[in-house]
Design a protein around this nucleic acid. Sequence first.
DNA 1: ATACTTATTGCAACTTGGTTGCATTTTTGA
DNA 2: TCAAAAATGCAACCAAGTTGCAATAAGTAT
Lengths: 151, 151
Amino acid sequence: MDEKHEDALLTLQHAGIAKTPQRLGVLNIFLAAKTPLSLSTIKKRLAAKVRFDKVTLYRILSLFKNLGIIREVTSRNGVNYFEIATKDNPVHPHFNCLNCGMLTCMEPLTFSQSRQLISPKEDYHVDHIEISITGLCAGCRDATKLQKRKN
Amino acid sequence: MDEKHEDALLTLQHAGIAKTPQRLGVLNIFLAAKTPLSLSTIKKRLAAKVRFDKVTLYRILSLFKNLGIIREVTSRNGVNYFEIATKDNPVHPHFNCLNCGMLTCMEPLTFSQSRQLISPKEDYHVDHIEISITGLCAGCRDATKLQKRKN
DNA sequence: ATACTTATTGCAACTTGGTTGCATTTTTGA
DNA sequence: TCAAAAATGCAACCAAGTTGCAATAAGTAT
C-alpha cells in the first residue's frame, strides 16, 4: 500500500539492522522530505506518529549517518541538517537562507558556474559562497588510534 | 611597542566603537591566530588576559561580525568558528578535520581545481567537499520586515 | 507460539552553547 | 571632571547534545 514504507523497510533490511517503528518513522520522514531536515523538524514530524525519546533520535541519526543512509549537510547557525543519501539524490550544494534558516537543494554544479546559475535564475539573494572540505588532517590520519577531541 | 595592539586600537577607532579591554583582547587574539577560532578557544585564550563574561564575548563577536571585522566560518559539528576579515585575508576555503575538529585555511581556489590542489599536495585525507551558499530566499527577501525564525 | 538472547529504547541527570533583562561599571566627550 | 551613553557582568533561563543504566522490544532457534 504505502510504497514509501516499503522503501524504508527494505533500507533497514539491506543495512542489516532491526526494523523498529522509530527507525521506520525517521526514514519515512526523510523519504518524504524535499529539503534537508533539522533535528527539531524531524522531532516535530516524528512526534505525531511514533512514541520516541530525543536520545533515540540522536542515536538513529548517528547510526544512519555511519551506514550511509543519510548524510549531514553543513549549515550556518550551528544547526545540523540531514538528508537522504540515495543514488538518485547525489551530493549537491544547498542554499541556506540567513533569515528563516531554511536549506534548499540546488542542482550539482561546478563552482565556476555557480554565480550565474543561482543568482538570477533561482531568485535568491546570494550573500556568501563557501567551500567546506572535510576529512582527516595529517596528524589525525597518521594517529593509529583516533581519539575524539572537540574545540 | 606592540604593533598588533596598535592594529586592534585602530580597528576599533575606525569602526567608531568604544575601545574596551575586552574588545581589544578579542581582536588581538584574532590578529595572532593562524586558523579560524571556535568560541571555546577564544574563551580560553581570553580568560588569561582580561576579565570577561561569556555574554560579553557573544556580544563582541556578534558586533564584530556585523561590522565586517570578522567573518563566520561554516564547520561541521555545529560549532561556529570565526576569523579576521582583513584585506590580506580574503574569503577562502577551509579544511575541517573530522577527528580533532581543527579548521585550517586553504588558498583561494576554484572548485574545478580543488581536488588536484588539496588531496596530494596538502597532505589531507579528503572525505567530503561541500559548497555552502548563504543569503536570503525569495520569501525572506521580499518580506518588508525580516522576522527571525529558527528551525 | 515460546523462551531466550541481543539489540534498542526510554529515563534521569548532566554538560555545553547560547540568549535575555537588568543593575553596575566603564568610556566617551563636553 | 562629570554627566550621558555605551558596554559589561550577573542571574536566570532555554535548547542541544551526551552518558549510564534499567526497561522493553526485536530477532532467532526451538
